[in-house]
Amino acid sequence: MERNDYPIVLQAKHVTQILGVAKSTTYELFASPGFPLLQLNGRKLVYRDSFFEWLDGKQKEAQ
């Protein structure tokens, strides 16, 4: 799937799918400093564009 094919607000299942990691790893990521987490009524979400900007930044750090 392309970035814009995902919904504007991503759920944990989307992040898990994009990264190809276990759901438990996704929730660890959600708790990490600097992750653009959005919490609504106890749900952990992330804006799609913020997530991909964060991911692009992590990729640049790794280079």
Rank of each mutant, 00 (worst) to 15 (best):
Q59F: 08
Y6T: 01
E53W: 01
F52Q: 00
L10W: 07
P36S: 12
I8T: 00
T26C: 12
L29W: 14
G42Q: 01
D56T: 11
F51V: 09
Y47K: 02
N41L: 06
E61F: 03
N4D: 10
T16Q: 07
G20D: 10
D56Q: 05
E2W: 04
Y6P: 00
H14G: 09
L45K: 04
S32R: 14
A12H: 04
E53N: 08
L40D: 10
L37M: 01
Q63E: 13
Q59K: 14
F35T: 15
Q17P: 03
E53T: 04
D5V: 06
W54E: 08
E2R: 08
G57C: 06
L40M: 07
N4T: 07
D5R: 13
L55C: 01
D56G: 08
I8W: 01
R3F: 02
A22S: 14
H14I: 08
K23C: 11
G20H: 11
K60L: 11
K13D: 13
T16P: 10
K44R: 15
L29N: 13
L19R: 11
Q17L: 09
Y47Q: 03
E28Q: 08
R43S: 10
L40Y: 03
F51K: 01
L45R: 12
E61I: 12
N4F: 07
S50A: 14
F30R: 12
M1H: 07
R43H: 02
Q17N: 04
K23I: 15
F30V: 13
L40S: 10
Q11T: 14
A62E: 14
F52G: 05
E2Y: 10
L45H: 09
F51E: 09
